[in-house]
């Protein structure tokens, strides 16, 4: 590890988001669900953005998601990312509904497609667990069906 490299900026935590980061640290990706209207969302907030109820609970995501859009950074807007160029940032939608900003890992961005199935990979950034996603690799027996599903989405 090169100690001269500037650190990647880590997420700010507050009382609202602490359960989110604690769950990731324990290997679970969670989102909030309103106990009044059942709406599900991220990022953490005190009130349901649909019905404004102040009552919600944390639920564990399945890890299945789809790719809404992605970009490839060729310019570092923060020195910590200079050595990571080019890197991919994406909008991802969980099977359960909430959307988040994340990275797509282990993929050539040229091969990505919108609405492509993804799977959760929890990685550590300076010790902090963060949710990233990789292209879901279908079981061999299901591969043909998955490819068709992707085409149908497009």
């Amino acid at each position: 590890m090169n100690i001269d490299l500037p650190a990647v900026p880590l997420p700010e935590r507050d009382a609202l988001s602490a359960p989110y980061w604690a769950a990731l640290d324990a290997g679970r990706h969670v989102y909030q669900r309103c106990t009044a209207c059942a709406h599900a969302w991220l990022p953490a907030r005190g009130e349901c953005p649909r019905c404004l109820s102040a009552h919600s609970r944390w639920e564990t995501a399945s890890g299945a998601a789809r790719l809404i859009s992605w970009v490839v950074y060729h310019t570092a807007f923060h020195p910590a990312f200079k050595e990571r160029l080019p890197y991919t940032v994406a909008v991802v939608e969980l099977r359960e509904g909430p959307r988040l900003i994340t990275n797509i890992i282990d993929s050539d961005p040229e091969t990505l497609r919108i609405d492509q199935p993804l799977r959760l990979v929890i990685e550590r950034e300076s010790g902090v667990a963060v949710p990233r996603y990789a292209v879901a690799v279908p079981l061999v027996s299901a591969a043909v069906g998955d490819v068709r599903a992707v085409k149908a989405f497009r």
Binding site: L10, P11, E12, S69, W70, H78, I101, N103, I114, V130
Partner: peptide
Amino acid sequence: AKPMSPDEVFGWFGAVGGYAMLARRHMEQ
């Protein structure tokens, strides 16, 4: 060029990144 907190850990910075996200979806869709 500001970070889009709390997502700077993913390298999500700057207005150009946001517009690129919209452009990609438009191009693909």
